[in-house]
Design a binder for these strands. Sequence first.
DNA 1: TTGACAGGCAACCATTTAGTTGCCTATAAA
DNA 2: TTTATAGGCAACTAAATGGTTGCCTGTCAA
Lengths: 108, 108
Amino acid sequence: MDDDDAVFKALADVSRRQLLDRLYERNGQTLNALCEDLDMTRQAVAKHLAILGEANLVSSEKQGREKLHFINVVPINGIAERWINKFERRHLSALSALKKALEDEGGR
Amino acid sequence: MDDDDAVFKALADVSRRQLLDRLYERNGQTLNALCEDLDMTRQAVAKHLAILGEANLVSSEKQGREKLHFINVVPINGIAERWINKFERRHLSALSALKKALEDEGGR
DNA sequence: TTGACAGGCAACCATTTAGTTGCCTATAAA
DNA sequence: TTTATAGGCAACTAAATGGTTGCCTGTCAA
């Protein structure tokens, strides 16, 4: 499976986008924490996290008996730049110039 | 189905993204033109176009016995702004300011 | 006016997907 | 050293998805 394809597929499900939202709000959550108030079993959430993991949108780190999950926005920015922005080429050069400038600033 | 959801779902399939690519290259193509060199039947392509249509990514216009298809990038920019850019809030305010400035220029 | 060509509709099929239940393992705490 | 907690694994199921074939309709051209 193409790399971009995995990301698009992972983003295609509303539950998975919700999980990313939650991780964006508070990064480094456990599986059980992510399950809270969701109308789904723990196993279902685990499967979604696995799919997000294969798309490199979430990474995890074991800590004792817990496993913390972290969002990784790189692939999202990737498809944004490689695919989505293409449909707005008009602005692209100016935008990326500004972005580079901001980044050179050091993310202040 | 949520509006964004329809767009994400529509973008989740590589054949549909390919169709958008083709329409981006040359807008206003007929169904049969879009089928060329694709390893799929006409009916399969028609279904994909229907899904893209429901997500408002493609519109069409009948002209005699032909039906021309047009890409619509608005929903793509929509999810880019409402959803994807959120994961890069650092830059968002500056970016949207520049975008607005460019648009006020009149798309020159 | 009769083909030929563009497209629409519907039934069907295989695979994938999103979810479930049930049970097992490992770590932490009593 | 039990027991509670966090998570993993596997089998199963219903529905959605991506595709097919077959046939029908409408429009243009010979």
